[in-house]
Write a protein that binds this DNA or RNA. Sequence first.
DNA 1: GTCCAGGGTGGAATCGATTTCCGAGCCGGT
DNA 2: ACCGGCTCGGAAATCGATTCCACCCTGGAC
Lengths: 333, 333
Amino acid sequence: MVTIYDVARHAGVSAATVSRVLNGHTQVDPTLAERVTSSVAELGYRRNAVARNLRRSRTTLWAVIISDVENPFFTAMVRGVEDIALTAGYSVVLCNSDENPEKESNYIAAALTEQMAGVIISPSSNRVDDVKLLQDAGCPVVVIDRELQGSPTDTVLVDNEHGAELATTHLVEQGYRRIACIGGPRWLSTATSRYEGYRRALTAAGLPLDPALLRFADFRERGGYEAMASLLDDGAEPDALFAANNLMTVGAMECLVQRDRAVPADIAVVGFDSIPWADLIRPTLTTVAQPAYEVGRQAGQLLTRRLAKPDADVTRIVLPTQLQVRASSLRLS
Amino acid sequence: MVTIYDVARHAGVSAATVSRVLNGHTQVDPTLAERVTSSVAELGYRRNAVARNLRRSRTTLWAVIISDVENPFFTAMVRGVEDIALTAGYSVVLCNSDENPEKESNYIAAALTEQMAGVIISPSSNRVDDVKLLQDAGCPVVVIDRELQGSPTDTVLVDNEHGAELATTHLVEQGYRRIACIGGPRWLSTATSRYEGYRRALTAAGLPLDPALLRFADFRERGGYEAMASLLDDGAEPDALFAANNLMTVGAMECLVQRDRAVPADIAVVGFDSIPWADLIRPTLTTVAQPAYEVGRQAGQLLTRRLAKPDADVTRIVLPTQLQVRASSLRLS
DNA sequence: GTCCAGGGTGGAATCGATTTCCGAGCCGGT
DNA sequence: ACCGGCTCGGAAATCGATTCCACCCTGGAC
């Protein structure tokens, strides 16, 4: 393995000079600099980032800890983070916590021991401890998608409550009266906000909040499927459904397809968060679209800002959601 | 920041002993060990992985360089890699090359400078140079999904040619005669193999290979859309389509929907690689399913094996594909 | 009682880069 | 000719862990 000393010897300078040329902080005689760069090329030298990071006691890596790699929302978001990271000279390490608090803790511990420059996380639990751990260790953190109570942290969210309210109101306006809701895990702020939006829309419309029409699942496809099945089996007779995330919407739809319930004739459906290729699904799905990529970008920008100014005020960004009406929620005349 | 020396001082032992306790390689007096562990807990010590990696000149990180995070095939595969990595004591760093050879080169360079323990890559070009670079530096590499000519490397593939042949033959058997093909970038082995399978099936059936029915796109949704549009606009009059990957299938379908071409009545469709929620798409899509998760697992296992035995023989694993017939390819009677 | 084997421990070197500190050389002004 | 100030290069310290090596101590063999 060729080290900086080999380069120095080959170029007839000291290791310090090689380092200076490589990092370009201070002035170096152009002649020497030229000798150094050509020696680097000739020997095929690549600097050892581990040694470098140790000495500088910081890295150029961001850990992005997301709760589900297979959810298109998160992958789109990661793209947004990546684009910011690259322009700011950082690389992104993607960690998949799989909605599992234990895996999440492990990744956080790893981020600390690996001296990551910063962490962007969508917490899968509302344990504040882990995030606190990072902050106490001086590691900048940005929380995305889900709000964390208790410790002030830079956060990027979408307007979940308003989105859910729009979706539900839309169903009301279409004339649906028995609007069921498949909510997410109660400990996630996204789930509670979306449920709250649903509730608000119902009361605003003067409709009762019927517990028989409520189910809470796990934000996964299978959970959505089972919640829908239970709604149908228990005879709650919903005429419409609001599902609180994309995967559960899909699961619910699959259940409806399997049981030959026509959408929207028998049951109208609105989902939260868009679904790839929503146009190919029949009927096309009405969804509350979230600016996933933009969430990632904003989180990236927040992190770069905090890296530059560790003591800046804590920021909380809320991005708007948008109701995209398609066929699945329209009242057939 | 608390270091191993702080722990040593607090526990009244030497740093060497602390290290021995932490790593558990050699025997340490249980009394001392106990003192060390409680000091670690009390001081909240976390070992500095950067320093550790420098000294041991190896890390416990795998870089997984995939060509598109937003393609469900790759995310499923990553899950497979992850599961193996975790049990083997490694962490996975996911890098998204975005089918961009330059980004890919950057990630490879980063993997080298960061002293990654190993790399799993789905190359977005057929430049062997980059992969050679890794191997020359002694960094174990496993190539997945796409074959790389020229240098022997552990590889995990699926049986692309056979899968494509099955798909095309199926269309032939359904009575279609003007079967179009939207292929992928010619420099990717997946694209050429799938095209080859298509070609073989046609000649086996005694059908001509009509250039008017051929398009080559970029494995992306937009590319599939445009290829389909061009097939329709140029009056090639296909009665069926074989699309060489999932995203292009979706793009083509979107084009067909937009132009009111009924599937399969006007044009039958078979896609390579499955699509999430294929059951919700109308008509349901016939696809060649790949064992994405299993590809990842096998790649992970190959990597652990090579890490254990750097000189083991090069392995090439080919996993089977499977035709899943759904509505989009059936001849309506 | 002496010697030897061997487990357990601490001191110090080491990994490969960065960065501080200091001295050498050069320039222009007096 | 001398001096102050400035630029640039090199020697050496440093980051925080691991690990080699030397030493001590204990117990068993003779």
